[in-house]
Design a protein around this nucleic acid. Structure first.
Lengths: 354, 354
DNA sequence: ATGAAAGCGCTAACAC
DNA sequence: GTGTTAGCGCTTTCAT
């Protein structure tokens, strides 16, 4: 074990309270004393014992971040941003993975780990609206994502519908009319990202006077590259004609690009593609992929800020707050306007290619 | 605060020691007592206070993982694997990011956080061989990577040289003779991944009787996609002829693919590409990218196992151990053997394309 | 097989 | 301004 407060106090010739005062920047300490204590701290290399501090004060300086899986780019980038935001507030982040498993998500909420975290940033994918009650726990939670709305906790989420609408409007703006959607959810709970983004899709079509064709909407069991690739192959196998794809997230979109290339369909000449989330990878795919960007730093910053406010606040508690960071459309090669004016004239589309 | 040991003891009508015995599966507890205690635990929803446990026992059940940045795919996948390995042992993982910054890496070692972690998995990139002394800390560390060898701690690293040699042999095996290397380190400390992999490169050339051409070896300040793309453009701008690229990691390799496409050089027809690490993304790039695969689960598993052994062991300590997981070459489209026998006959190469 | 009690290092209420 | 002191909840001798 390292040196303790007592060791420092002894060396400095003061009581532990004075040492504690110095450590916590208590203003009423004589400068001379402060210097003496600080020297003792330095020579001993004293580091506070966080377990003891946590036991006594109820605060550990550690927050939890529960996500489905770090190997999914979006969550890795989110975790990156969260850790940075936490660090700037002197907090550390304990990362848990749920694999998108319902039991694992419930375990995160009720396990023994939370009792030693100051708070939890929770991004569920298996829990749904009906599970809001499980968020009623005796420590602060900030909910991330679109699975549950109006729950008992603070919540950070995107402007899903309007962002999706903007994405599709971008496609329509470059002259596309047959916009496929990849990533519709199999089980539609009514409050998940898929539904919200799909709503934006329909709004954009409607505003442009384009009819809705259910054949263009493809489900994916998993929001990953495999799912996107597979859905695209199915779309083509079914002989559906399309000149654009709106992938409900970037991983799907990268799978779409991959599949289109396998089918020897040119992007964006034959089919334009836009994703959602603007993960780093979208900049480097071949072709680079347009996407809807949410400032992830902003999102992480907001989430950590909400959490810290909660564990600093006194009763009575503020009501749950909802924060929705802004978004922008990032146009890249996959929606490059190669002969956009001809897009209608030459009825390009995957079905032509087969 | 939740219920404590005392609450459970009172409800069960026993002492806290008995409750503690039940929790720790101490064998000499009457079955009847055990049941009674267990019921009390369940009805109260008792969860042990980890801060108190940590204070008393010196063990918190939390290990640290310090990596440069989670937004780098390789480290996200590593973190994923580490968290899984830790979870299977009942440990949680606190993730720290160093941004590859020397001061940040030193802070990880000496900060107050370590004093509350049971151990640390540390993947430095700024520290080097001369900094081995900083690893002499009073808690167990497992070093990851190739920056420091022969240090005072356990160490998990790849067979860099032989794996790199195998990668280059793969390229030679499909008929390539002008193999460029992307990612050589600017400042060569002699014990980093770059040097070791470069050594494998030279071994492979030598074994095949191919002369070493320093023009083919390109430096990159950063091992990311930008670095790989930039180095590739430079290579071509310099008019160097090459028919294959060995990217010292996959992020570089993906940048290489991107740049080759911008230069309208076909992969693998004109130039074959192989990376290193086999990140998930390599499977989905366009074209998919061959790579050197280290079983990351194995690596993570080994690292966590070494760490747990350390904090369970009694004095005297075992000497530092070195673990090097196996590797395999994963062949994908980027080294697809399109007319491999002609590779020599038709002196394909980037320089032809300009 | 179970209980009593000390104390891990720290914070904060209270004394002086 | 600084010191004293009582626990926070748990583990762990030592008794019984």
């Amino acid at each position: 074990m390292g040196p303790t407060l007592h060791d420092v106090a002894r060396l400095a010739g003061v009581s532990i309270k004075t040492v504690s005062n110095v450590i916590h920047d208590y203003p009423y300490v004589k400068d001379a004393t402060r210097t003496r204590v600080q020297n003792a701290i330095d020579t001993l290399g004293y580091q506070p014992n966080l377990s003891a501090r946590g036991l006594r004060s109820g605060r550990t300086g550690v927050i939890g971040l529960a996500v489905p899986a770090l190997r999914e780019n979006y969550f890795a980038e989110l975790a990156d941003a969260v850790i940075r935001a936490a660090e700037s507030r002197g907090l550390s982040v304990l990362v848990e993975q749920t694999s998108g498993d319902r039991d694992a998500e419930l375990r995160v909420l009720s396990g023994s780990r939370p009792r030693f975290l100051d708070g939890l940033l929770f991004s569920p994918v298996a829990l749904g609206q009906d599970d809001a009650k499980f968020l009623e726990v005796p420590y602060p939670i900030v909910l991330l994502g679109e699975r549950i709305f109006g729950g008992p906790t603070d919540h950070v989420t995107m402007h899903n519908t309007s962002a999706a609408r903007a994405a599709v409007e971008h496609l329509i703006g470059i002259g596309r009319r047959r916009v496929a959607v990849v990533g519709a959810s199999v089980t539609d709970t009514g409050t998940n990202s898929s539904t919200l983004r799909l709503r934006g899709y329909r709004q954009a079509l409607e505003a442009a006077g384009i009819g809705f064709d259910p054949d263009l909407v493809r489900e994916c069991a998993h929001w990953n590259r495999d799912g996107g690739a597979e859905a695209t192959h199915r779309l083509i196998r079914d002989g559906v004609s399309f000149d654009a794809v709106f992938a409900l997230n970037d991983s799907l979109g990268l799978g779409v690009l991959r599949a289109l290339r396998e089918e020897e369909i040119r992007v964006p000449e034959d089919v334009a593609v836009i994703g959602f989330d603007n993960i780093d990878e979208a900049r480097f795919s071949v072709p680079s992929m347009s996407s809807v960007a949410t400032k992830r730093e902003e999102l992480a910053e907001a989430a950590v800020a909400l959490l810290t406010e909660r564990f600093q606040e006194k009763e009575p508690r503020l009501p749950p707050r909802l924060v929705q960071p802004d978004f922008t459309i990032v146009a890249r090669e996959s929606t490059g306007t190669y002969s956009p004016t001809h897009a209608d004239a030459t009825p390009a589309g995957a079905s032509q290619e087969r």
